[in-house]
Amino acid sequence: MPHHHINYLEIPVKNVAKTKTFFKQVFGWQFQDYGSQYSCFLDVGISGGFFESDTVFTTENGAPLIVLYSSSLEQTQSRVTEYGGQISKAIFTFPGGRRFQFLDTNGNEYAVWSE
């Protein structure tokens, strides 16, 4: 394992089961459960997991923004809303591509980008 690389990401969520359903439906993620209050996401670019907490993270409250990649931005944006997510910033351009930001079913904010 490379020394001093980001190795793992833990994300607070209000409901682990509901979060797993959302990310599986929208992004096709798979999970490994460790009890009812913790689940690791598998093969998504970085290792990590969801843990139950009342904490909500958004850029407005100073949290880092977790950015996912999509080769079909409009389709991914549609899937986010179809499965209960809420768009917090509609698709916009930035140097290097386009992206949108959304709140998952817990109210946590993420972004999705494409070229």
Rank of each mutant, 00 (worst) to 15 (best):
R99W: 02
I66W: 00
Y8H: 15
T55K: 14
Y110P: 00
L65F: 04
E109Y: 09
N7G: 14
F23T: 05
L65K: 04
S114H: 00
G35F: 06
F22N: 02
A111F: 00
Y38H: 12
S71G: 13
R98F: 04
F22M: 10
L65G: 03
A90R: 00
T55V: 13
P64S: 12
S72T: 11
V26Y: 06
E82F: 08
E115I: 09
P12R: 05
S39G: 12
G96M: 04
V26W: 05
V26D: 07
E115V: 09
F102I: 06
S78D: 14
G85W: 00
Q75N: 12
E10K: 11
A17L: 15
T19N: 02
E74Q: 12
T21W: 00
A111N: 02
E82T: 15
V44F: 02
G28I: 09
M1H: 08
Q25Y: 06
L73W: 01
F27E: 02
F57M: 09
K14F: 08
I87A: 07
K14C: 09
F50W: 10
F22Y: 05
I11L: 15
A90L: 04
G28H: 04
G107H: 06
N7T: 15
Y38K: 06
L103Q: 11
K18V: 08
N7M: 13
D104K: 00
Q25I: 09
E115F: 07
H5R: 04
G45V: 13
S39M: 08
Q101K: 08
T76R: 03
C40T: 15
I11A: 07
T58F: 10
I87F: 03
S39Y: 01
R79I: 04
G96S: 04
L42Q: 14
A90H: 07
S39H: 03
T19E: 01
G97S: 07
S70I: 11
I91D: 01
